[in-house]
């Protein structure tokens, strides 16, 4: 529809209907009610959520890789079974989230295509390598710990299907964090070499974990709008602080040193002070220049392409069975 002036262009279609719908949406948000799939919602709300949920789903899927490479090299059958279950959970979380994204009108195959074409992001943390088995423990403790800080508030996301997916995910993340911490406790009770491996892994993962919460609030332009919409519940810096406050006593108990000389208790604030992560490094990793960006995407693309014949065979089988008259589970 041609817009005679910029003023008119802001309200396309029937002015009253659009206004009513917007008012209804705003009142649902104001009353902390959930928005459900077929409700009217502003285009920007839908686009923001699709981007957020897809990015979250992609992170779960790519997140299988750093730990997945250790499944065949787990030190015991017990550790292998645990790691297998954990990586399978990550796949499951990705599926819950793609399912939620689809209720917004996104197409799952299209999201996968965008991921492997590098047109949609995933969490920068998964672009770092896992060098020893201690990394498996530290990822569970710190990376999944940071994910829990991020995700628990999202169980109250204003978008119903996303909030419900987050409830399922958070229930399962607790196992992830605890298995990691238990693994590290076991290694810390082992040989000096094992303790060194744990400290080395902590040194490498601490700063990338802090970066998981995203840029500082003053460089996060969309935060205010996302908070007004209830798709974000705390700012990046608030979440980062709660993660630091949670992790310091856990590091003490474990007997490792967090690699930040600026870390100290601030009695006035009732929180730990800590140093700024290297935001230039963060920008580089987000831009695709981290240590493993290319390898992660290549692996995902390869898995997708090598799975093509399986998907085709499943369709052929289903078609044949339907032609024979009926399908039975």
């Amino acid at each position: 529809m041609p817009a005679p002036s910029s003023h008119v262009a802001e309200v396309p279609g029937d002015e009253n209907t659009a206004g009513d719908e917007r008012a209804h949406f705003d009142s649902l948000i104001a009353r902390e009610q959930r928005i459900e799939p077929r409700d009217w919602m502003p285009d920007e709300y839908r686009a923001t959520l699709i981007r957020q949920v897809a990015q979250h789903a992609h992170s779960e899927i790519i997140g299988m890789q750093p730990e997945g490479m250790w499944i065949t090299r787990a030190p015991s059958l017990r550790r292998k079974a645990i790691l297998l279950a954990k990586v399978q959970d990550e796949a499951g979380h990705g599926m819950y989230l793609y399912s939620a994204a689809e209720t917004l009108g996104a197409d799952r195959a299209d999201l996968t295509a965008k991921l492997i074409a590098g047109r949609q992001k995933y969490s920068s943390i998964f672009n770092y390598p896992t060098l020893t088995y201690a990394d498996v423990g530290v990822i569970g403790w710190l990376v999944d710990g940071a994910a829990i800080c991020n995700q628990v508030p999202l169980c109250r996301s204003s978008y119903g299907p996303y909030a419900r997916a987050m409830v399922r995910i958070c229930k399962e993340e607790s196992f992830h964090q605890r298995q990691g911490y238990e693994l590290l406790l076991t290694m810390m009770a082992g040989t000096p070499g094992q303790r060194e491996m744990v400290q080395d892994a902590v040194d490498r993962w601490w700063w990338p974990s802090l970066m998981m919460f995203g840029p500082p609030d003053e460089s996060s332009p969309n935060t205010a709008r996302s908070m007004a919409w209830g798709v974000k519940r705390h700012t990046n810096d608030e979440l980062r602080q709660s993660f630091v406050d949670m992790s310091v006593p856990q590091a003490d108990r474990l007997g490792v040193t967090l690699p930040d000389t600026g870390l100290s208790w601030n009695g006035e604030r009732g929180s730990y002070d800590f140093s700024e992560p290297d935001w230039a490094e963060f920008a580089q990793v987000v831009a695709g220049n981290g240590p493993c960006n290319a390898a992660r995407l290549a692996r995902r693309r390869e898995a997708h392409e090598n799975g093509e014949w399986v998907r085709a065979a499943a369709v052929a089988h289903a078609t044949k069975r339907a032609a024979r008259g009926g399908e039975r589970p």
């Binding site: 279950a85 399978q88 959970d89 499951g92 599926m95 819950y96 399912s99 939620a100 689809e102 799952r108 419900r164 997916a165 399922r168 399962e172 998907r311 499943a314 369709v315 089988h317 289903a318 069975r321 339907a322 399908e327 039975r328 589970p329």
Partner: peptide, 24 residues
């Protein structure tokens, strides 16, 4: 209702749903 799965047919959808939604 707990979510959704893609599958080539209903029989496979049931199996995918079992793998995805009843791991615990």
């Amino acid at each position: 209702h707990v979510g959704s799965v893609h599958a080539p047919d209903a029989a496979m959808a049931l199996r995918n749903a079992r793998d995805l939604y009843t791991r615990r």
